Computed example of a mutant assay.
Amino acid sequence: MQFAHIADTHLGYRQYGLTERENDFFEVFDQAIREIVQERPDFVIHSGDLFEYSRPPTRALLTVQKGILRLKEEKIPIYAIAGNHDVVMRKNALPPQILYKDFGLKLISPKKPFYLGGDVFIGGAPYASRYHSKQLIERLQNIEKNSLDYKKRILVLHQGIDRYMPYEYEIKIGDVPQSFNYCAFGHIHERVVDDFGEGKLAYPGSTEIWRSNELEGYKKNGKGFYLVDVSGDLPEIQNIDLELPREFIKEIIPYNRLEEEISRLKIHVAHLAKKPLLNLTVEGETSAGPIYMKL
């Protein structure tokens, strides 16, 4: 049995205020749906931050609707939780994922904490802040109790853990139940796969470069989603890489070589199909004025 594990698509994000970047996130999501259909998994898990905002723009809503309907046509169920970007911070508020209930999306929530996909238990909880970590831990304990009679058990969360986010975590690694075959996490934008308890704990990372500090991880590990096979004793995890729409160039340039380096970048950019993102740091000049003039 195989499933696709995806997270942190952040649809509707207009990075740097650029419409082009908003379109890039849509394009990558559409590509992910095509890849999932091609792989033909038994189901899909989205581990939160489907959208950038709890009140997404119309095009973001329509892009997701189109993707979910495509999966429905192929008889591929999708299970999802709300991430911190999806959550409206008020009591009893509903995340935008609820709009797709009639289109086939199965939302994992406090009212419906788990589903059964054949003989597979799929349970979890939406994002909880550090101030609500006690309630989250209690939920996890109840979910674990309900899962124990099933051979294959998947836990879905959108949380930072102290092992991976030592200064910004919501729960500790010891708070995560160890009886699950696969812990499908979201929130961290880098790809992570670790042995954990009776199986694996994994973050598939974001599908696009959400911040410039993700560039190094992207060059090393790519961006995309996981294809997970839980047929054996331990899950087998395959990276499915997505092709990002444009190049992201991040460089440190000495001020005394600025004009030469700009000329080099102009030549490089001229051969690209789309304008790249340039993130330049200029060193060796204390006054910003001359640097801005040359840039």
Score class of each variant (00 low, 15 high):
residue 45 I to H: 06
residue 287 S to I: 13
residue 140 L to G: 07
residue 153 R to M: 00
residue 233 D to H: 06
residue 265 L to A: 02
residue 201 L to D: 02
residue 53 Y to R: 07
residue 79 Y to V: 05
residue 204 P to E: 14
residue 273 A to Q: 14
residue 241 D to G: 04
residue 187 H to G: 03
residue 188 I to S: 02
residue 191 R to E: 08
residue 190 E to K: 08
residue 77 P to F: 06
residue 122 I to M: 07
residue 147 S to D: 00
residue 253 I to Y: 04
residue 188 I to G: 01
residue 183 C to W: 02
residue 229 D to T: 10
residue 9 T to H: 05
residue 250 K to G: 05
residue 29 F to W: 14
residue 148 L to T: 00
residue 211 R to I: 09
residue 23 N to F: 10
residue 243 E to A: 09
residue 187 H to F: 01
residue 162 D to W: 13
residue 85 H to V: 06
residue 271 H to G: 04
residue 37 V to H: 00
residue 23 N to P: 07
residue 163 R to Q: 13
residue 64 V to W: 08
residue 139 R to C: 12
residue 287 S to T: 12
residue 236 E to Y: 13
residue 39 E to I: 06
residue 15 Q to S: 11
residue 20 E to Y: 10
residue 265 L to W: 04
residue 164 Y to Q: 05
residue 244 L to W: 06
residue 245 P to H: 04
residue 144 E to C: 02
residue 93 A to Q: 09
residue 143 I to G: 00
residue 293 M to N: 11
residue 247 E to M: 06
residue 216 E to R: 06
residue 95 P to G: 02
residue 172 K to H: 13
residue 137 I to E: 11
residue 293 M to E: 12
residue 246 R to M: 02
residue 217 G to R: 02
residue 90 R to I: 12
residue 152 K to E: 03
residue 139 R to Q: 14
residue 276 P to W: 09
residue 178 Q to C: 05
residue 172 K to W: 11
residue 65 Q to E: 15
residue 112 K to D: 12
residue 196 F to Y: 14
residue 130 R to Q: 10
residue 196 F to I: 05
residue 211 R to F: 08
residue 12 G to P: 04
residue 16 Y to T: 15
residue 156 V to R: 01
residue 260 E to M: 01
residue 118 G to T: 10
residue 178 Q to G: 03
residue 100 Y to G: 02
residue 171 I to W: 11
residue 159 Q to F: 13
residue 281 T to D: 15
residue 236 E to P: 07
residue 273 A to M: 14
residue 286 T to H: 07
residue 251 E to A: 10
residue 190 E to R: 09
residue 131 Y to I: 10
residue 176 V to P: 01
residue 292 Y to A: 07
residue 292 Y to D: 05
residue 192 V to S: 01
residue 97 Q to A: 11
residue 137 I to V: 15
residue 212 S to Q: 11
residue 198 E to M: 02
residue 211 R to E: 12
residue 72 K to L: 08
residue 175 D to W: 10
residue 104 G to L: 15
residue 172 K to A: 13
residue 220 K to I: 15
residue 204 P to T: 12
residue 34 R to H: 12
residue 284 G to R: 11
residue 192 V to W: 01
residue 231 S to G: 09
residue 37 V to Y: 00
residue 129 S to K: 14
residue 262 I to T: 05
residue 145 K to W: 01
residue 167 Y to I: 14
residue 40 R to F: 10
residue 295 L to Q: 09
residue 5 H to F: 08
residue 169 Y to K: 07
residue 270 A to Y: 00
residue 144 E to Q: 06
residue 76 I to N: 02
residue 266 K to L: 08
residue 194 D to Q: 14
residue 170 E to H: 07
residue 28 V to P: 02
residue 214 E to K: 03
residue 161 I to D: 04
residue 70 R to S: 15
residue 150 Y to M: 03
residue 128 A to R: 08
residue 164 Y to V: 10
residue 108 I to S: 05
residue 140 L to Y: 12
residue 282 V to H: 02
residue 134 K to E: 15
residue 81 I to M: 15
residue 68 I to C: 06
residue 233 D to G: 05
residue 265 L to D: 04
residue 95 P to C: 09
residue 123 G to F: 04
residue 247 E to W: 03
residue 3 F to T: 00
